[in-house]
Simulated assay, not measured.
Amino acid sequence: MGKASVPAGEAYTIELRRRYDAQIDDVWDAVTSPERLRRWLKPITGDLRPGGTFEFDGGEHGEILRCEPPRLLKVSWLYGPDGDAWPGTSEVEVRLAPGPNGDTEFELIHAAVVEEPLFPTYGPGAGGVGWDLALLTLARLLAGGETAGHEAVEKSPEAREFIRRSAAAWGEAHLAAGGDPEHVAAAVEATTTFYAPDPA
């Protein structure tokens, strides 16, 4: 479900693939409509067209680089004012393709040029676990379920086990991409603690 790659130059890439039992136009609407984005990701504001800028309630912001309905959306993705909350630059690309049975193949690629200490501390789970949680909430939205954004999901009792498994899976992807086992183990522990701190 997740894949990580080691630096190509200075960039790290995480890839997530899902299949949703929903028509491609419905999935496209869910990833581009402000009303639906707030239900599985976060509230969004901005000039939501190619060349425009956006900002999520939470500080993530960027520019809409490509928009080819209903198949491709690519944005720059920065954190905090001027991107200083997560030093470096990153881009998120969403690709959709119609499946054989009226379903939709979904792919999200997050490529980042990040500085210390983000990747060394957390590995690909830094972004991977967050996207896993968001896409879990997107799946609920597309299935017609009630959602309150993935941050609410993170606080549910079931979320701790989901986060633990997600962090471990991103650790396996990191190992497969050539990560040092000792570094990977520390990164998985740091990521798990970040997303699911000990309630005690």
Results as ranks from 00 to 15, higher is better:
residue 2 G to A: 12
residue 2 G to V: 10
residue 4 A to E: 07
residue 6 V to C: 15
residue 7 P to A: 08
residue 8 A to P: 09
residue 10 E to Q: 14
residue 12 Y to L: 09
residue 15 E to M: 12
residue 15 E to S: 13
residue 16 L to E: 12
residue 17 R to Q: 06
residue 18 R to I: 03
residue 18 R to S: 07
residue 19 R to C: 15
residue 19 R to H: 14
residue 20 Y to H: 08
residue 20 Y to V: 03
residue 22 A to I: 01
residue 25 D to W: 02
residue 26 D to N: 11
residue 29 D to C: 10
residue 29 D to M: 13
residue 33 S to G: 05
residue 34 P to D: 03
residue 35 E to G: 07
residue 35 E to F: 01
residue 37 L to Y: 00
residue 37 L to V: 00
residue 37 L to E: 00
residue 39 R to Q: 07
residue 39 R to H: 02
residue 41 L to V: 00
residue 42 K to N: 15
residue 43 P to M: 08
residue 43 P to N: 11
residue 44 I to S: 06
residue 44 I to T: 09
residue 45 T to A: 13
residue 46 G to R: 02
residue 47 D to A: 10
residue 48 L to C: 06
residue 49 R to H: 13
residue 51 G to S: 01
residue 52 G to K: 05
residue 53 T to M: 15
residue 53 T to Q: 12
residue 57 D to H: 13
residue 57 D to G: 14
residue 59 G to L: 01
residue 60 E to Y: 11
residue 62 G to Q: 06
residue 70 P to Y: 03
residue 72 L to W: 05
residue 73 L to H: 04
residue 73 L to W: 09
residue 74 K to C: 11
residue 74 K to Y: 10
residue 74 K to E: 13
residue 80 G to M: 08
residue 83 G to H: 04
residue 84 D to Y: 05
residue 87 P to S: 11
residue 88 G to F: 02
residue 90 S to N: 09
residue 91 E to Y: 09
residue 91 E to S: 08
residue 92 V to M: 06
residue 94 V to P: 09
residue 95 R to T: 15
residue 95 R to A: 14
residue 95 R to M: 12
residue 96 L to Y: 04
residue 99 G to E: 05
residue 99 G to C: 07
residue 100 P to W: 08
residue 104 T to A: 06
residue 105 E to Y: 13
residue 107 E to L: 08
residue 108 L to M: 10
residue 108 L to W: 02
residue 112 A to E: 10
residue 114 V to I: 14
residue 115 E to S: 15
residue 117 P to F: 00
residue 118 L to H: 14
residue 121 T to P: 07
residue 123 G to H: 01
residue 124 P to W: 04
residue 125 G to W: 01
residue 127 G to C: 11
residue 127 G to E: 12
residue 128 G to D: 06
residue 128 G to F: 03
residue 129 V to F: 04
residue 129 V to D: 02
residue 130 G to H: 06
residue 132 D to G: 08
residue 132 D to H: 11
residue 132 D to W: 08
residue 132 D to I: 05
residue 138 L to G: 01
residue 138 L to M: 09
residue 139 A to W: 00
residue 139 A to S: 10
residue 142 L to Q: 02
residue 142 L to T: 01
residue 143 A to Y: 11
residue 143 A to P: 08
residue 145 G to P: 15
residue 149 G to H: 02
residue 149 G to E: 02
residue 153 V to H: 13
residue 154 E to Q: 15
residue 155 K to A: 15
residue 156 S to T: 15
residue 158 E to A: 10
residue 160 R to F: 02
residue 161 E to T: 15
residue 161 E to W: 07
residue 162 F to L: 15
residue 163 I to W: 05
residue 164 R to G: 13
residue 166 S to M: 04
residue 167 A to H: 09
residue 169 A to H: 12
residue 169 A to P: 07
residue 170 W to N: 05
residue 173 A to K: 00
residue 173 A to S: 06
residue 173 A to I: 01
residue 175 L to A: 10
residue 175 L to S: 12
residue 178 G to K: 04
residue 181 P to W: 08
residue 183 H to C: 15
residue 183 H to R: 14
residue 184 V to H: 05
residue 186 A to M: 12
residue 187 A to F: 11
residue 188 V to T: 04
residue 189 E to Y: 09
residue 190 A to D: 08
residue 194 F to P: 03
residue 195 Y to R: 05
residue 197 P to C: 13
residue 197 P to M: 09
residue 198 D to W: 02
residue 199 P to T: 14
residue 200 A to M: 10
